[in-house]
Design a protein around this nucleic acid. Structure first.
Lengths: 153, 153
DNA sequence: CTGAATTAGTTTCAAATGTAACTATTATGT
DNA sequence: ACATAATAGTTACATTTGAAACTAATTCAG
């Protein structure tokens, strides 16, 4: 008895399951806009954030979409080169550089959003309306709890 | 009316939420064994698969834990250098190289498993027993459905 | 039996990512 | 006011990752 090693059944282990599910979904979604529009996941997320909340500084974007400032900086660099995002300088604080979509960027954004929502709808088709609410609620609580655990280990 | 551009509320968008949750959980877990044992996520997953199902070939490992063979090969390379994993050659099919944990690898495995299970238990503390079952069921169905969508696009 | 196709696994090269150091600007404390 | 610290963002370097090419062994078709 007692000191027998426990087995870890990876395929039932929650962190593993979440990771595999998220990756599958993320890759599927990526297929939608990587080919046709040539965007990376981070680039698309930046565009989505700007599409809704522009003007935002790079730091603001990072806060919104949980991405560190280096990743944002690089995504923005690529998007500006392609003329999808433009940047101004804040007259009052010249460190800050508010970002926004260009007309071209907005047009692309408006093409991608319906595709993304369509994919989400197809995914949700596996669940009833109530199950969707349940899933979202459980994810929210898990997320909040995981953050607590991380900060008070 | 009609052709108004829809907004994508990233923070309510399921693929995004799954991604952020999975990443937070995965990083928290990684903290448990990265420092003390010097393992990467992929290395630990390979060890977990071997801890349960050895002997497995690299391809078998990949199938079990949803990891492509290049990633498995690299993880195994690192683990063998550290004497945690050993490899034989199949006499009947010399392409196949069955893998297993060494005694040292098994000992480390048996130290990490309780830590991983403890973290999972702490995470699950956010949910009731019934909610855990519900979450797992919903994740299963979402995963199966997402795979269908991927294969019949 | 022999040549084409498959399968297992590794290596290579390019792209993505994380960490830390760096520049520039603004805020703060004395 | 002036040195110090804090903030915004970029750059540089090292590590990871992914895709494709490659080696080696086996299978299969004719």
């Amino acid at each position: 008895m007692s000191t027998e090693a426990q087995a870890l059944e990876l395929e039932k282990f929650l962190p593993y399951r979440l990771s595999v599910l998220a990756q599958l979904v993320s890759e599927s979604l990526h297929d939608l806009y990587a080919g046709p529009f040539g965007l990376s996941v981070t680039q698309w997320r930046v565009m989505a954030a700007l599409g809704r909340f522009a003007p935002l500084t790079a730091s603001d974007v990072g806060l919104r979409i949980v991405m560190d400032k280096v990743a944002v900086s690089r995504a923005v660099g690529g998007l500006m080169k392609r003329g999808l995002v433009e940047r101004a300088t804040d007259r009052e604080d010249r460190r800050r550089e508010p970002l926004g979509l260009t007309a071209k960027g907005r047009a692309m954004h408006d093409e991608i959003v319906p595709l993304a929502l369509k994919y989400e709808a197809e995914l949700y088709a596996a669940l009833s309306a109530e199950e969707r609410r349940t899933l979202n609620g459980l994810c929210d609580r898990l997320f909040a709890h995981a953050k607590l655990l991380r900060n008070h280990p």
